[in-house]
Amino acid sequence: MTGKSDNPILSMISRMISPFIMIYALYVIFHGHYSPGGGFQGGTMLGAAVILSRLASGSELSRLLLGKGIGTLMGAIGVFIYFGTGFLAMLLGGRFLEYKYLARIMPVSDAMARNWGIQFVEVGVGLAVMGIMVALYDDILTGEPDA
């Protein structure tokens, strides 16, 4: 599991396709407003792209794409972005996740502040899901030593 795939065709095609999957995933995250998509869906695809490159090139080479412990850290940062948006709204005077109060620090109207609030939350969710999927793959692969 940790080594390169034996088949050169598989290995090369996976390496070529992986960036395109990531771009499509970003598209899906940001178009969650107006078409089917959103944070979790795009995050899963981002995670799948990284895991594909890990499977195709082996864990050592794929370290260049996404480092070893970064998965958990990115997951935490994603949840912080989500939680931070809600908390920021609370600090600015509203309830938790009341995005219209974000209009006090951003130069937009109330309705657009809700739009931007949801976008931040979706980005946070996407980052969190990607981080956790990569972290799950990495940790299960290099689990505890034989006991």
């Binding site: 958990t72 850290l73 935490a76 949840v79 912080f80 939680f83 809600g86 908390f87 938790f96």
Partner: peptide, 12 residues
């Protein structure tokens, strides 16, 4: 909220 954020913050 406090417990959720500190579960992650504490790990970091």
């Amino acid at each position: 909220l406090i417990l959720l954020s500190s579960a992650l913050l504490g790990t970091v």
